[in-house]
Every structure is written in C-alpha cells, then in structure tokens.
Design a binder for these strands. Sequence first.
DNA 1: TAAATACTGAACCACATGGTTCAGTATTTC
DNA 2: GAAATACTGAACCATGTGGTTCAGTATTTA
Lengths: 121, 121
Amino acid sequence: MVQYFRPPLDASFAALSDTTRRGVLEQLGRSDASITELAEKFHMTLTGMKKHVGVLEQAGLVTTEKVGRVRTCKLGLRRLEEEAAWIERYRQLWDARFDELDKVVEELKRKEKADGRKKRK
Amino acid sequence: MVQYFRPPLDASFAALSDTTRRGVLEQLGRSDASITELAEKFHMTLTGMKKHVGVLEQAGLVTTEKVGRVRTCKLGLRRLEEEAAWIERYRQLWDARFDELDKVVEELKRKEKADGRKKRK
DNA sequence: TAAATACTGAACCACATGGTTCAGTATTTC
DNA sequence: GAAATACTGAACCATGTGGTTCAGTATTTA
C-alpha cells in the first residue's frame, strides 16, 4: 500500500493487472461511487475495496474526496496516454520484427531453391 | 513463478508493470537474445533474468527455445491487442465522462447566474 | 578428457498483494 | 442522546515478486 516511488508506468500497469480494479475504473467511467457502493458491486469488504482504491489513487487513475462520512471516488487525471503510447510503440516493434523474420524465411527458401538447382546441375 | 491461471489481461499487464521486463521486450524487438545476454544487459544474475523471462513467457509475450546449452528468447505471439483495446476503450470512457462533467459545471454556472439575477431583482 | 560455458532448481530474503476480521472514530439520522 | 452508517487502521494470513547465492547438470571447446 505504501509504495514510496515506482516509475509511473510500473504503477499504472500494476494497477491495471487486477480484474477488480479494471472493473472499478469502468464503473467510475459510468458514474462516481462511494467505497460502500463499490464494495457491494464487487462483493468485497469495505476494507478490501479501500485498498484497491488506494492502489488506483497512487497510480493517478482515481481521485477521492471525503464529504461528511462518505468518500466519493472519481476517475483521476491520468488518461493512460503513456501506457497507450508504450503499447503502440511495442506493437510497431513487433510488426517490424515479424516482417523481418518473414524476410529471413523468404531468403532461406530462395537459397534452398538455388541450392537445389546447383545440386541438380 | 507458477501462476496456475490468471486472466490473460491480468497476466500481461502484470508482466508489463516492471521496467526490466519492458526493457527486455524492447530488446527482443530489436533482436533475439540468450538469457546470458539479457542478464548482462540488465545487470542481473542469470537466475534473476530467467525469472523475468518466465513471467513474460507465461503472459505469452515471449517464447524461448533451448538449443544445445543456449536458450534463445524471442517475442511471443501476443501482440498486446486486447491490452491496447482495453486501454482505448477506457480512454473513450474517460473522455465521455469528463465531457459530461464539463456539462454539469456549465449547467451550474448558468443556474448561478440565473440565481444572481433573481436575488438582485 | 578436462575446463569452460550456459543454464537450472532449490532455498532464502525482504517486502508487496489481495484478501480478511476486529475494533475503533466521525457523521448522520431518528 | 442513542443508534445506524461509512469509513479507517492495525493486524493477520497465504501467496507472489524481485532479487540473491549455491550447488548442481548438460553441452561445447581446447
């Protein structure tokens, strides 16, 4: 819970690596909610949900405000831009890498053919 | 390390939540590498790197093959499509949500003005 | 065949995670 | 003012994480 400092991408990807927390984000995308409401929706104790919200808050994905006895949770400022960008970059790398491998395979096939011809000659 | 079963998004986001592992993916995007090579590049013991590769492998992000005494690591089949899609969907939710809030704020401002006029009347 | 290389598995460490219960405190509500 | 509500913090639990060391095994190389 303390999590003194983690690179932001580490923290947000870690926050996203739990089904419940992704669900909470989706829920908050539809409407703000109190800890109690979230705990009920996700079949969990208040304390348990509070911890999840804490993780999301640390990652900048959620902000909360307590008014009276109710703490209301909303989406935070982080819009997953860096995360989307990292993944996009990776996908480009991946595509390039597999294209390259395809070329190598093609090259091998061509050589094989040439070899076959040589041998047959 | 065992990780019997985790929803795929859980596993891949968890795999991405570590700087070293993201680095390994970027490296493998440039060229395949042995465990030893990766361990050196990331200043870590062989055993330590082997664990990271294990996590990436479980998440489908890396595949490995051992030939002789060398285990070679390459990018796996998972291209982060579901991950990109989840994040994209979230960003749309986020935008919609904040547009909505903007409207609410506008509405409040308009009412305030109207109230002001009433009181002054 | 001896030595070097490359990995592997077990065991350990400190700390994080995802949950719980229990015992509060602060705020409403009746 | 008593009771209900909403949260909070501490403590606990089992398991996971990110690393290590140490003691192997298997494969090359000289």
